[in-house]
């Protein structure tokens, strides 16, 4: 059993997001939390509004890229931050609930604005211990 968590990893100009969990869907959810954590502490984002999201792609790699870019888009146009994600993946189709609230510049003190999830260091796969890893570099 792999404990679900997220982490950041370095890149020359920007920063990497990585989700680790015992299922692919939860690794995608953790990668999304890592994305939020680039901006602010996800624990400080209240779950006031639920946004339903869907995307599909021909490969796990492109699905992760699409998922994170969809979140970046929703964060930008809704002026929101998300602190909780519930993700299901079935046959290349991702359905998710993202919970969050409008950006509060004083309380969230947003550090950076993600521009886009890139194809650099893009990986989705299982480790030897069975844990799923979902990661890429985000341009900020």
């Amino acid at each position: 059993m792999v404990s679900a968590h997220y982490e950041h990893f370095p890149h020359g100009a920007d920063i990497g997001v990585r989700g680790i969990a015992d299922s692919k869907a939860e690794a995608f959810a953790q990668a999304a939390l890592a994305l939020t954590a680039l901006v602010t502490d996800p624990a400080g984002v209240a779950s006031r509004t639920k946004v339903l999201l869907e995307c599909s792609a021909p490969s796990d790699l492109l699905l992760l890229n699409d998922w994170l870019n969809r979140l970046i888009y929703e964060m930008a146009v809704r002026r929101m931050l998300f602190g909780r994600y519930e993700v299901a993946i079935d046959d290349g189709r991702l359905r998710a609930e993202a919970w969050g609230e409008p950006v509060d510049r004083d309380r969230h003190a947003p550090a950076v604005e993600p521009k886009g999830a890139t194809l650099t260091e893009l990986k989705v796969g299982q480790r030897d211990d069975g844990g799923w890893v979902a990661q890429c570099i985000v341009d900020v």
Binding site: L62, N65, D66, N69, K115, G116, A117, L119
Partner: peptide, 10 residues
């Protein structure tokens, strides 16, 4: 610009 970059890269 960010969105154009994202979409065309894919």
């Amino acid at each position: 610009g960010h969105q154009i970059g994202t979409e065309f890269l894919r």
